[in-house]
Amino acid sequence: MTPPEPAMIEPRILEVRTKILKKNDELARDMRDQFQSAEVLVTNMVSSPGTGKTTLLREMLTRFVAAGDRVAAIVGDLETDNDARRLAESGAPVRQIMTHGCCHLEADMIEEHLEGWELSELDFLFIENVGNLVCPTSWDLGESVRVALLSVTEGEDKPLKYPGLFNTSDVAVITKIDLAIPCEFDRNLALENIQSVRPGMQVFETSAKTGEGMDLWIDYLRQKRNQLIGTVGSIGK
């Protein structure tokens, strides 16, 4: 009789050491490479419901279309395609992702909804994430720019309550600044709170209603695209 192997009785510890979302991360990395070689700047917009993502994005798309830039948008919502219809008023191609309860977008949803679009025919692709300040933070969508938005109606302490979002975002936008005075928005406090959770973060202030701050914000995105194209060039050398 052979004694049982000790390894079969002792619990075995497998050193896995892997990211739980590695599948999403790997797909997002591939997509980022594709976006980069197609020279399309992808921007992922994250905020609470009602911050003004759709209104701002429609205004952005309208301006890009008028300037002759090739833009498209993908918008995620739990239900309905209302936002896609609002965005399509800009004249840009728009696709809706209905997540049916899922509180964030994942890379494979974007990949699926890109089908039939020729990436090399786009300069900018915008993704409006599902309205939520927590859930979207862990999912890389292959974007080059992640923007955290907050409106003057939401309270200045949002950054302190959601440091995870501000720390995975590249830039912040404060929306609805036309309402700053009636809402008694404390601008300095909001900026201070953003800097507290993310030192050095660049912040834009916009109103989709009056157009204030739009030019600076759009210039920033153009600069980001130029940087992206610059890196493609240097890789080619």
């Binding site: 510890i13 896995v16 050491r17 892997t18 720390n167 995975t168």
Partner: peptide, 17 residues
Amino acid sequence: ADIRQGKELDIDTIEIA
């Protein structure tokens, strides 16, 4: 803003018995 750790969402080990 130079974050070195704190964003982990990792599997460290799996214990098999």
